[in-house]
Write a protein that binds this DNA or RNA. Sequence first.
DNA 1: CCGGTGATCCACT
DNA 2: GTGGATCACCGGA
Length: 206
Amino acid sequence: MGVGCDSGVVLPDLSRHALDVAPLLVGCRLQAGPVTVRLVEVEAYEGGADPASHAYRGRTARNAVMFGPSGHLYVYLLHGSVCCNVVCGPEGVATAVLLRAGEVEAGQDLARERRLVRRASPLTDRDLARGPGNLCRALGITSADNGADLLGGGGLQLLPAERRPAAVGSGPRVNVSTAADRPWRFWDAASPSVSLFKRHPRAVTG
DNA sequence: CCGGTGATCCACT
DNA sequence: GTGGATCACCGGA
């Protein structure tokens, strides 16, 4: 009965496509030094066939990490916030999973300190890592972490779930303007830290 | 709801 | 080289 016999204690095979990996990442944990977050909400982004993906129009300086080997972190800035993805798929295929929200399991004091910078209102435990930008801030992830190897024993580590969530929900991705009907968002149905669904104001299906 | 945010990309000089 | 549209967001009202 070694590690690996129980599907709840191994990481998913990240060299598969994001759509296969995403639901299995719900419940896994991301550790950044003293702060550990249990992932409760993710979204799959395919490469060439997904108009909502940063890689849809091919390789650029920004998205180069997405085309590299799986298990690395793709970090970018959006509207002044840092967001991060776990790169999936074989090398050369730009498919990745956006980490949208988590529950802070360890290092809550540090996470809270980071979140309260330039913020007036109080912050509940539920909201410490709720939302893609907030999750990165709680973990201290910056654009300097773009390309970091999550399986290489460095400061950032992806860890297996202790146990699988009882139920994983799925539905359309948040705030995407194209392919807005694809149910490629996955979340732990029991978690209060899952962010609220928001449809893009000019959403187009397809 | 609304405005700020900051990088990136492309169509044009 | 420059301008403007775009974007997988956040916070406060």
